[in-house]
Amino acid sequence: MKSPPVIARAIARGFSGLSGERGSQLLPQARLAGPMPWVIAIMIALTSIAAAGGLALNNLAQAARAELSGGVTVQIVEADPVERARQATAAATALAGKPGVSAIRVIPDAELDRLIEPWLGDAASGDAAIPVPALIDLHLSGTITPQRLGELRNALASAAPSARIDAQADWLGPVFAAISSLQWLALALIALLALASIAAVWLAARSALGSNHETIEVVHHLGGTDAQIARIFQRSVARDALLGGCAGLAIGLIAVFLLAQRFAALGSGMIDGGGLDVMDWAILALVPVAGIVLAALTARFTVLAALRRML
């Protein structure tokens, strides 16, 4: 028998081995592929649609708020047109001198008629018209507090006793409440989808762990560290998640884009404010990145927990 070759003296040189291709080679690819990328794709698609919805609602609410903030409506509710006109002018004059009033506009009768016509028809104009309150659009700088409204109300009490004064945002209070609950719903959906993704990755990592148990044991006995073995699985899952994430993002973005076009076609001024800006698209692009990180971390901790049960 020949004497053995000069064998590599490689013991305990480092714990950096098995990174990269050599590590992933240890797991047969077919085991981890399969349904995983598809499950992740569906999760990412749903998550990005939910996120897009949440972001659009946020923009919508902000646009509406910006438009309405500072907006105050003064109505002169008075049946006699002459007295109504007098009070409207008096109110406008009284308000003009007030601090914090940045803009003031008495809405002309013609414009009011036009606003009301679709509902009341010709009856709105002419001599026999149904009395319609005069409107004054008022813009205040800064935020509107009940106290400021009260001051304005007092200022009008003598000049225009028939005046009613309201912050425009108050009318839309219920709308904002609805938008905000929809946003919470979107957030809850994202959280649930993240949990489902974790569960899916956890199951996949567990089954991969089971079917590769022999390999893991061998690497373990050859002095492989937990971190080395976990890294192998982590990479494998991350690659699946990358595939699934890209597919999911594509599906999600197409869906969001089509929905956005449908809403734009409605042409409603309200919904115009709900578009997505560059920042929002960037956040959507981060969804699959977060998915990949989540999947890799889940795989890592699943494998580490299983390994800790071995000596």
Binding site: A8, A10, I11, A12, R13, G14, F15, S16, G17, L18, R22, V218, V219, L222, G223, G224, Q228
Partner: peptide
């Protein structure tokens, strides 16, 4: 494998 595990 043992050499790769050891980082050779």
């Amino acid at each position: 494998l043992p050499l790769r595990v050891a980082g050779v």
